[in-house]
Amino acid sequence: MPTFRTYDDAELHYRVLGPADSPLAPLLCLAGGPGRDAAYLGDLGGLSGRRPLIVPDSRGTGGSPTAADPSRYAFPHLAEDIEALRAHLGLERFALLAHSAGAAVAQAYAAAHPQRLTRLVLVCPGSRLQGELPDDAREIFAARRDEEWWPEAAAAVRQLAEATDLDEVRRLLLTAAPLGYGRWEEPQRAHAATQGEQLGPVPRAGFWQGVDEQAMGAVLEGLRRVECPVLVVTGDRDGMAGMRAGELVAESFPHAQVRPLHAVGHYPWVDEPELFGQVVEEFLHAS
């Protein structure tokens, strides 16, 4: 697995998926979680068949070592790791895709280095950075109460609020997993089954640590200067982030559009891989 040296001389890992001889520019892809192994992104529903995907392992996940300084897990610092990776790859400008909590890293990067981005794709982002936590995710989840898995998933969600044992947390997350998908069939079950082993409790805990209102305000101010086109993808069955959060994120940029996908949850490339790939590629190719 290739590596790069970041700003504090940490050696971090990344993967390159897809054709090395592709005429298309690479797409750098950030995982969410926060602190989840980027393996859950897979090939993003076949996007790697169209263009190279560069997928870094953030600190303490995948092949990348834990951070000697816990403050390095905070998302503004993770954004500077992305800038080090860009320089390592020799990319003057590039397109960036980020999922879920990874969208906070992407926004911090865009605010600090707006001139480096050609396109930005934010998939099912939350809106904690924007200072609002809409309730529509709960409404989406509640609207599916007639599905077979719902009673156990609802109970697991309630228990997660007080669970501290890591094995118990993993069990409850798997039980609650259907709320993150548009449907609960074999591809979704297989994808959800990997979540427990991919958790990074320490990177997760450090993601928002030390990021105060002033720091978040500086990021939001920087987003107003981002000139590249921005696509925010949401799913109308996303019981984790909902759809309103994506709208709030889009409103933070001067040139953003929201693309809601039907019958899709928090992992669009799992629920509707062909549709997801088509939407992303059309945006990347748009003039």
Rank of each mutant, 00 (worst) to 15 (best):
M1N: 06
M1V: 12
M1G: 10
F4M: 00
Y7H: 11
A10W: 00
V16W: 00
G18H: 05
A20M: 06
A20H: 11
D21P: 01
D21C: 08
S22H: 05
A25R: 03
P26H: 05
L28S: 08
P34I: 14
P34S: 13
Y40C: 11
G42H: 07
L47C: 03
I54E: 00
I54H: 01
D57I: 05
D57W: 05
S58R: 06
T61Y: 02
G63D: 08
S64K: 06
D69N: 09
P70A: 12
S71C: 04
R72Q: 12
A74K: 00
H77P: 07
L78Y: 00
L85P: 00
L85R: 00
H88Y: 06
L89I: 04
L89R: 03
R93G: 03
F94A: 03
A98Q: 08
A98N: 11
H99D: 04
H99W: 13
A103Q: 06
A103S: 15
A104N: 14
A104D: 10
V105W: 03
Q107C: 12
Y109R: 07
A111T: 13
A112H: 07
P114T: 14
R119Q: 01
L122P: 00
L122E: 05
V123H: 04
P125M: 12
G131H: 10
L133I: 07
P134N: 10
A137C: 08
R138G: 15
F141C: 08
R144Q: 09
R145C: 13
W149K: 09
P151T: 09
A154M: 12
A154C: 15
A156V: 05
L160K: 08
E168P: 06
L174R: 07
P178A: 12
G180D: 04
W184H: 05
Q188D: 07
Q188T: 13
Q195L: 09
E197Y: 06
Q198I: 06
G200H: 10
P203I: 09
A205N: 02
F207D: 10
W208V: 14
Q214V: 15
A215D: 02
V219I: 15
V219C: 02
V219W: 02
V219Q: 00
L220A: 02
E221N: 02
G222C: 04
L231V: 12
V233H: 00
V233W: 01
R244H: 05
A245K: 09
G246L: 13
V249H: 04
A250W: 05
A250S: 09
F253K: 03
V258R: 01
R259M: 14
P260R: 03
G265M: 08
P268Y: 14
W269R: 01
V270S: 01
E272A: 13
E274P: 02
F276G: 05
L284K: 02
H285D: 13
A286K: 09
